[in-house]
Design a protein around this nucleic acid. Structure first.
Lengths: 121, 121
DNA sequence: GCTAGTATGCACCTTTTGGTAAGTACCAGG
DNA sequence: CCTGGTACTTACCAAAAGGTGCATACTAGC
């Protein structure tokens, strides 16, 4: 039903950065502009479809800017917009929190789904 | 299998608050402890299954504490743990960002799915 | 003996999301 | 001419997340 009404700002923020690869994209673009292939290699195990999709959403949301050099072979650079930079700033404490408690969170996540433990026995 | 290894703290944080209702739960528990039914009414359009599920995950993650009064009829209170409070602190700037840009984000989200709000015709 | 209200569990189903594999247009090098 | 590298698209699929509704144990009220 997508009641596009957020009760707290958290919902709005998470709607923007909620994709699987978006935090990583933000993370890598925070330093500098990057070419598409460069970004993909930096992230590592992401497929083209996913990366493009997430980049397009972030672009549509005004977080990242796409600069197409119109060259052959294709050359496209992605960077944070100023709006995206305000988001990156707001994300810093959360990123710090995650870094600080990363090992604890990793343990929790691995316990959440060890292996098929909900099978009919 | 998703290697539970986070490259940046953002991933870890989002793994914890990534549920659909978790931001809301955090939001409501940030002020004070609340009984289950109280919380459900505060959130509004959440189902029992979802709320319980999210609460259990947050509890397993050490973010919220569950206090069962062992009474009949049942009475259970949920509150933030001190760990949960550190998370809430880290979330503040992001929440502020979301609040600040809420109307913009709402527009973006509604454009993402042109169906808007489904009404029973 | 009903129903209501408490907090929660369980089975089933739908929607959303993420992932895989292929194909596009273009040019350089072998 | 075939391969590789660029950036990107598309069709199809699997898995996860979310949602609905009924069931539980217990008491109070009608």
């Amino acid at each position: 039903m997508t009641t596009s009404n957020f009760v707290c700002g958290l919902d709005a923020s998470l709607a923007v950065i909620g994709g699987k690869w978006k935090p990583l994209i933000l993370f890598h673009l925070a330093y500098e502009a990057r070419r598409y292939g460069d970004l993909r290699r930096a992230i590592g195990n992401v497929s083209d479809k996913m990366l493009i999709q997430q980049l397009k959403e972030l672009e549509a949301d005004g977080i990242v800017a796409r600069h197409d050099f119109k060259e052959i072979p294709p050359r496209v650079e992605y960077s944070l917009t100023s709006f995206g930079q305000t988001l990156a700033e707001a994300l810093k404490p959360l990123c710090a929190w995650g870094t600080e408690h990363m090992s604890a969170v990793e343990k929790l996540m691995s316990r959440r789904e060890p292996f098929g433990s909900k099978k009919i026995a």
